[in-house]
Amino acid sequence: MLTVFRSWPVLAGLLLLAACAEPRQELPVNTRLGGDFTLTDHHGQPFRLADQQGRVVLMFFGYTHCPDICPATLARVSQVYRNLREAGDADAVQPLFITFDPSRDTPAHLSEYVPWFKANVIGLTGSEAEIRAVAEQYGVVYLQSGDGAAEYDFTHSDYVYLLDQQGRVRKLYPSDFNIDEVTDDVQSLL
């Protein structure tokens, strides 16, 4: 390698190539989804999205009785957060977990559930109407199955949302997203 770099023309060529590399595309703003909302956080306090202005938000809808997709997705979001923390960027990012199962996912239950992921996740709940309204804002579809049974689950969409510092939706990811991709996207907004 040292031998190669002794040749200044080669080094200059490599630097020129790097300079000409295509710049990262700016993430587009999704104007069809999103908007401000107010729910209740896992401490039982009101949470307004607009109060997160200045921070990038990673947001996921789910429920704690979900055994497969939801904990796996929260674990992946947590890994993104840990990557950002190692890079010194965690303070500029806020993960949110919004339940669509408010009758079981109370603030008290969420306060024992979300801290386990060690990613500063804020758990959000509210009335069924409040949650339904937020879900509609973000195009989230969910339907309780089990018709009043004690044990029930949900049919649901499971995208993870990336919101910029103005609360605008910049990208949606499938729940099995690539951790490096999301980490890079978050950092591109910082």
Partner: peptide, 11 residues
């Protein structure tokens, strides 16, 4: 899959 101690379910 490891889940929080209060998790009602695991896979």
């Amino acid at each position: 899959r490891a889940v929080p101690p209060v998790a009602p379910a695991m896979a």
